[in-house]
């Protein structure tokens, strides 16, 4: 992954500050987020302290500084969903991926989060993956969905 960043940096002249945002965008595109390592490398390349890079980057909402998974699963934890068993869904997912809420799988493919009422109470329990809703969930259905996600990667 350092190589990836190096390749990006090579495209830009050293000690030139005007490309910082463009480079940051490319790093995020390649890595999914802006890591500490990439900030250090960028800062050395353009000759600006890391705090100034971070200051610029944090100004824009599109930059994230933690690894994000390919699939971010947001399970609704609103009242309706809770009553219809959102917590069993959460523990099912936690077991399935061997991670806890908020965490991310080692291969950076899945991440589980909770969200309060997703606005589809009638079809509870529901979850959302990268903007797509799945309702009336059961463990089988979730297995199916996960399978779909995995196969879409190949």
């Amino acid at each position: 992954m350092d190589n990836l960043i190096e390749l990006i940096l090579l495209k830009y002249p050293k000690n030139a500050t005007e490309n910082i945002i463009e480079i940051l965008l490319q790093i995020q595109e390649a890595e999914g987020f802006i890591s500490a390592q990439s900030i250090i490398m960028l800062s050395e390349h353009v000759g600006v302290q890391s705090s100034k890079i971070y200051s610029v980057a944090s100004f824009y909402d599109q930059f994230v500084f933690e690894a994000r998974a390919k699939f971010i699963i947001r399970v609704c934890s609103g009242t309706s969903c809770y009553i219809s068993g959102s917590d069993t869904i959460i523990s099912f997912l936690e077991k399935e991926f061997n991670i806890r809420i908020g965490e991310i799988t080692r291969d950076h493919v899945f991440q589980i989060e909770t969200k309060s009422c997703l606005g589809a109470c009638a079809q509870s329990p529901v979850l959302e993956i990268n903007g797509v809703f799945y309702s009336n969930l059961t463990p089988q259905r979730i297995r199916q969905i996960i399978h779909q996600c995995k196969s879409s990667l190949q």
């Binding site: 500490a36 900030i39 705090s51 971070y54 200051s55 944090s58 100004f59």
Partner: peptide, 16 residues
């Protein structure tokens, strides 16, 4: 450095 912008601005270190 300044982190973020507008009403969420704070002063902190790299990666906070």
């Amino acid at each position: 450095c300044f982190i973020k912008k507008g009403s969420s601005t704070t002063v902190g270190t790299t990666l906070n």
